[in-house]
Computed example of a mutant assay.
Amino acid sequence: MNEPTWRKPVGVLAILVMLTLWAVAVAMLSPVVGGWHWVLQLAFYLIAGIAWLWVLPMRRMLSWMETGRWR
């Protein structure tokens, strides 16, 4: 049986910190983005939420938590 590693709890804490910082950043931008046309708002939040948060740091963080290597 595999021993638990320190990477998973550290990774979970790092994910929570990143999500909190990201939520604060998006909330601070909401007055600016709120003045845009709804289509631009939708595009901004889709790109900001899915592409930046998931594809870039989260995928690598989850990979590191499982394997110990950044991919």
Rank of each mutant, 00 (worst) to 15 (best):
M1V: 07
E3F: 09
E3G: 09
E3D: 12
P4V: 02
P4K: 06
P4E: 06
T5K: 10
W6Q: 13
W6T: 13
W6I: 12
R7T: 04
P9I: 06
P9D: 01
V10G: 05
V10K: 13
V12D: 06
I15H: 02
V17H: 00
V17G: 03
V17N: 01
M18T: 10
L19R: 05
T20P: 00
T20W: 04
T20H: 03
L21A: 14
L21F: 02
L21Q: 03
L21E: 05
W22T: 15
W22A: 14
A23C: 02
A23K: 00
A23W: 00
A23D: 00
V24K: 05
A25N: 07
V26Y: 06
L29K: 01
S30Y: 08
S30C: 05
P31V: 01
V33L: 04
V33Y: 03
G34S: 08
G34N: 10
G34W: 09
G35D: 13
G35S: 10
W36E: 08
W38C: 00
V39P: 04
V39M: 13
L40W: 12
A43L: 12
A43C: 05
A43G: 08
I47P: 00
I47T: 13
I47G: 12
I50C: 02
I50P: 00
A51P: 01
A51V: 15
W54E: 11
L56W: 15
L56R: 07
P57R: 09
P57L: 11
P57V: 10
R59E: 08
R60M: 10
R60A: 13
M61S: 10
M61V: 14
M61E: 04
M61R: 08
M61F: 06
L62S: 07
L62R: 15
L62G: 04
S63F: 12
S63Y: 09
S63M: 10
S63N: 13
W64M: 06
W64P: 04
E66A: 15
G68D: 07
R69I: 04
W70L: 13
